[in-house]
Write a protein that binds this DNA or RNA. Structure first.
Lengths: 224, 224
DNA sequence: AAAAAAATTTAGACTAGACTAAAATATTTT
DNA sequence: AAAATATTTTAGTCTAGTCTAAATTTTTTT
C-alpha cells in the first residue's frame, strides 16, 4: 500500500508534536495542527497504525515507529529543500514559500530529492534557519537560543524563527531582523518581558515577548 | 469550487484528443488515455460539465469550453516547464522526466510558474521538442514534419518525438538520434515502409515505420 | 470517591473518484 | 430496415478522508 499525501501530513504533524513534547502525541493536539476534527484524527490514526507507521493505544496517544520516523524525516527534508529552491533559485521571499513547499514535499520520484539537494549545493538550513536532514536522516546540530533566554550584554546573530507565519516574517523584515542580522541585548523589562536591542546597523528596537520567544540567536564569542 | 488534480488530468486528456482529431472527444477515447473505465469517464464528464469546463452532450462526446481550454493550456505549460527544469537543472534524461512532471504540473501557487519560466530562460520547447505555450497561452509554431512524410534526398534535424515512452526515447539515444541530430533520408523501402538514413556523424541506420512515424524532422534548406 | 469536565472514540453520513454489471443508445452490417 | 455489434450511460457498490452527534473513557475538581 502506498502512503497517501494525507497520511504524510499526519506523520509530519505527529513528528512535530513529538519533537516538542517528547511524549506521545494526543488526538486533540494532532487535530489542532491539522485543523481538523478529533474524530477524523482517530480514523487516520487507525490507518497509520495498520500501516505500522505509528503505535497507537486507544485514549493514550501515538508514537512514531522507526519507519514512521524515517518517513517524517524524509518529508521534512523534502519540504525544506524545496523552500531553499524557491527562495534561492526562484527569488521568493521567506514568507511566501511555505504553502508551495507543502505541496512540493509530496512529489515522489527516484533520485529527485538527492538531485535537488545537489543542485542547491547541499544546504544545511532552510530559509527560516531550520536544519535540513541529510539523505541518511541525520541533522546538523546548531547552538542557538531563543532571544527570550539570553542575558543583557550578550551579542549574537539571528539564526532562526519558531513561528513561520507570514505576518511574523514580514514584521521581522520590517524591523531589519532577517537571518544573519546582528543583535546585542541591551535591556530586559520585567513588566512585560519585552527587551531593548541594538541591531548591527546601530538602530535600537524594542521587541515584545512574543517576538523574543520566536527568534533564535546564535551567541557571538564575547571576545570578538 | 477548486479544480482537482483528477479533473486537471481529464482536461489534459480531452485537450490532447481534440488536438489530434479536431472532433468532440469520445468517452472511450478518454478512457483509453486515462487508463480507466468508460463509466468513470462518464461520471467525470458530468462533473466537468457542471463546472463549465466542457460542453457535454450525452452519447455525443465533449468539447472544451474557453475556460477549459485555457486551463488545459496552462497545465501543459506547467508540465513542460517542469520537464525543462528536471533535465536542464537537475540533470535527468529526457526519458525520466514524464512521471515527475505529471506530479509537478499540479502544484498551485501564485507566480510560481512565471518565476520558473523566467529562471529557465523562457524556453520555447521542452526536452522532447514540444512547444511550451507562453503565459498568455500562445504557442510557438515550428515547421517540422514526420520523417515518414519526407522524400529521399532531403536532409534535416531531429526536432521532436510523438511517442514519449521511455523505451522509444532510450532507443533513440542508442541510435544517436537525440534532439538536434542531423539526418539525411537516403532511401525508402516500400515493402515495410522502413527507411535508410545517414546521421550527422556519418553512420547509416535503418529505421522502422514505427520510428519514422514518431520522429519529427525540421528540413534544412537544400542550398546549405 | 463521586461528580463534573475534558478528551477521545464510535456511529452514521457525506463527497470524490473509482469499479462492475446491466440497461440504453448509436452505429454498422446484412 | 432489421439485426448485430459497439459505445455510452445508469445503477449500485467501494474506499479514503472528512464531518456531526452521541457514547465512552480519562482526568480533574470537589
Amino acid at each position: 500500500m502506498p502512503i497517501t499525501q494525507a497520511e504524510e501530513n499526519y506523520l509530519k504533524a505527529i513528528f512535530k508534536i513529538a519533537e516538542k513534547d517528547d511524549k506521545p502525541a494526543l488526538t486533540n493536539a494532532i487535530a489542532a495542527v491539522m485543523q481538523t476534527s478529533a474524530a477524523s484524527v482517530t480514523d487516520m490514526l487507525k490507518r497509520l497504525a495498520d500501516k505500522q507507521l505509528i503505535t497507537y493505544e486507544k485514549y493514550r496517544g501515538v508514537q512514531l515507529t522507526e519507519e514512521g520516523h524515517r518517513l517524517s524525516t524524509a518529508l521534512i527534508r523534502r519540504h525544506r529543500l524545496w523552500e531553499v529552491f524557491l527562495t534561492e533559485k526562484l527569488g521568493f521571499a521567506w514568507d511566501e514559500v511555505h504553502d508551495l513547499a507543502e505541496q512540493l514535499e509530496h512529489i515522489q520520484g527516484n533520485g529527485l530529492i538527492d538531485r535537488l539537494d545537489n543542485f542547491l549545493g547541499n544546504p544545511g538550513f532552510d530559509p527560516h534557519g531550520d536544519p535540513i536532514p541529510n539523505a541518511e536522516g541525520h541533522w546538523t546540530y546548531r547552538n542557538q537560543s531563543l532571544l527570550a533566554t539570553l542575558q543583557p550584554g550578550t551579542q549574537g546573530v539571528v539564526t532562526g524563527v519558531d513561528d513561520h507565519s507570514a505576518t511574523f516574517l514580514q514584521y521581522l523584515d520590517q524591523l531589519g531582523l532577517a537571518l544573519g542580522a546582528q543583535v546585542s541585548l541591551l535591556e530586559q523589562f520585567p513588566y512585560d518581558h519585552s527587551v531593548r536591542v541594538r541591531t548591527g546597523d546601530g538602530r535600537e528596537l524594542v521587541l515584545s515577548e512574543k517576538v523574543t520567544k520566536n527568534l533564535y540567536i546564535k551567541l557571538l564569542e564575547s571576545g570578538n
